[in-house]
């Protein structure tokens, strides 16, 4: 897991004809955790997808050293299959790695079809998929949604352990997470307000 790194320079993101943020620079080194905070609709999820390489930024570049694992609101587990099979599919792709089933409290749910799981249970199953992937860079989009207090503690501990082992965690969430050494990136600082149209090349008016 050594020497993973994620750096973004001069990022801008456009949704439709609206510029969500711009001139965003950030660099995350191995062992660091970064929380992205912003009000709804500011582009947290879009930023996560850009950092993952799943969406193209409107401007700027992302430099990623190391595999990325993504956890968002879609667990990517087959609805009709029992949890053991759904997670087993990813284990076949990722290789035999610890999915932390015991810690996440999923052992008792292994025979339950995914469609019967609650929101929180799905989120925990998605965490198991992420653990099994063994990627050094974790990109978490609202990881605490639907989790109960005990599961929140478990997941915070997992993220902290991941960073202590030299991994990177980037968390987009409006909830506060207790992870030691976590820095915060306020997306609102890079937002484009209607008064800040001084740069015609990047203003949303010129985009239309």
């Amino acid at each position: 897991m050594n020497a993973c790194r994620l750096a973004a320079s001069n990022l801008a993101c456009r949704k439709g004809d609206r510029l969500l943020f711009r001139r965003l620079d950030c660099a995350v080194e191995a062992g660091q955790a970064l929380q992205i905070t912003a009000p709804n609709g500011m582009g947290k999820s879009s930023l996560i997808r850009i950092l993952a390489g799943l969406a193209r930024p409107f401007a700027g570049a992302v430099e990623r050293n190391g595999a990325a694992g993504l956890l968002d609101e879609r667990p990517a587990l087959d609805e009709h299959r029992p949890l053991s099979n759904a997670l087993g599919f990813w284990r076949n792709l990722d290789g035999e790695q610890d999915q932390a089933l015991q810690e996440l409290g999923l052992k008792a749910l292994m025979e339950v079809p995914v469609r019967y799981l609650s929101t929180g249970q799905r989120k925990r199953a998605a965490f198991a998929r992420l653990m099994g992937q063994g990627a050094p860079i974790w990109l978490l989009d609202e990881p605490l949604n639907g989790l109960d207090t005990q599961a929140v503690t478990v997941c915070e501990a997992m993220v902290e352990r991941h960073c202590n082992k030299g991994g990177i965690a980037i968390i987009a969430s409006h909830q506060s997470m207790r992870i030691s050494g976590m820095t915060e990136l306020k997306l609102a600082d890079f937002a484009v307000t209607s008064s800040s149209a001084e740069d015609p090349a990047l203003s949303s008016e010129s985009v239309i």
């Binding site: 390489g53 595999a67 694992g69 993504l70 968002d72 879609r74 087959d78 990813w90 990722d94």
Partner: peptide, 14 residues
């Protein structure tokens, strides 16, 4: 696509 499988495959280089 809705359940995020294509995203996860892309992240794994498939």
């Amino acid at each position: 696509l809705e359940q995020g499988f294509f995203d996860q495959w892309a992240l794994r280089g498939i």
